[in-house]
Simulated scan of single mutants.
Amino acid sequence: MEKSELSTRDRMCSVAGGMAGLLVDREIPSRLIPFRGEFPLLDMIEAIRFREAIRSTMWIEDLPPKFLYAAAEGSRIARLEREFRHYLSRNGLKSGDFEKLEDAEKSEWLQRWMEADSVSADDLVVKKYRDEATPVSKSLGDPAMPVAEKREIYDDLVARRAYWDDLCFEFGRVSWEKKLLNLALYIHYGGDLEVVLARYKENHPDYADRIPHSLAYYISYLRTGEATSVLNNFLLERVCLSESRLTALLTAELRERLEEVFRWDGGTNSAWTVGIDYRGEEKMDEIVT
């Protein structure tokens, strides 16, 4: 992979978008490197929507054009500053001490770094997004990622205790909505929950008994907006569905509920969401009444 390309990990919104999200609305993007261009990359309202978008999107190439551009340019700025900080550190100079130098000394350090790391003057020029014809930064590389590669990433993600052991600390650190969306996208990209659970049991045999409980929680949350509800108890204690039946039911629910939603800019790019019936239990009570 060439230096200018982003790795698979770096194309994830949580990585590239996270780095860019810290500076897309800054008038001066870096205190160390004198980037030239029109700043900020996004105005205040756009920056808020950008941060909302990167929280609900997996890959930066799935963002709307303007946000994709900001993510690519913003993460490029952040990576260049990080590389410059590393260069200063390797040469015994802290970034805080660099900021105190005279302009002439700063220029010398920058020139030496640019020569050492093959950074050109053009790399320090940042242009604002104009329209859909504006090219995305070369750092994005080839945005086309095979479905199998996306599936592998989700496969590693959803095979953790945070998804299947409701008694572990990590389980509560990921929201129900986020876990359900990741499980739905894993299935969407060709994944099989039976395969994931079989592998999970091999790796975590001591916690395998919690799988049926987690499956019932997920189904309950999809249908009622609550993990523990009358439905949860019904599945586990009244009809006593087997783990395989619960897995099949959850798979069917996630396939049915995964939806694409339009972006804020009205473009053709879409975000993913899982339809959750937050009034489900209330509706059941009304039917019973």
Score class of each variant (00 low, 15 high):
17 G>A: 03
18 G>K: 03
18 G>P: 00
19 M>H: 01
25 D>V: 03
28 I>M: 11
29 P>A: 09
30 S>C: 09
31 R>W: 09
35 F>K: 06
36 R>E: 14
38 E>Y: 14
38 E>D: 14
39 F>I: 08
40 P>D: 08
42 L>K: 04
42 L>S: 03
44 M>N: 09
45 I>A: 15
46 E>K: 12
46 E>I: 04
47 A>W: 07
47 A>V: 12
49 R>G: 05
50 F>I: 06
51 R>F: 08
51 R>Q: 14
52 E>F: 10
54 I>D: 01
54 I>W: 05
55 R>P: 00
55 R>S: 11
56 S>P: 04
58 M>K: 05
59 W>K: 02
59 W>T: 03
61 E>P: 02
61 E>D: 06
63 L>T: 03
63 L>G: 00
63 L>R: 05
66 K>C: 05
67 F>V: 04
68 L>W: 04
68 L>C: 04
69 Y>S: 03
69 Y>Q: 00
71 A>D: 04
75 S>G: 08
78 A>F: 15
82 R>E: 13
83 E>S: 07
84 F>C: 02
84 F>R: 00
87 Y>T: 05
88 L>I: 07
90 R>V: 02
95 S>W: 10
95 S>L: 10
95 S>I: 08
95 S>D: 14
95 S>A: 13
98 F>Q: 05
98 F>M: 11
100 K>D: 09
101 L>D: 08
103 D>E: 15
116 A>E: 11
116 A>V: 01
118 S>K: 14
118 S>L: 15
119 V>T: 08
119 V>E: 06
123 D>Q: 13
123 D>I: 08
123 D>Y: 07
123 D>R: 10
125 V>W: 13
125 V>G: 06
127 K>C: 07
133 A>S: 05
134 T>W: 01
135 P>L: 07
137 S>A: 13
140 L>P: 02
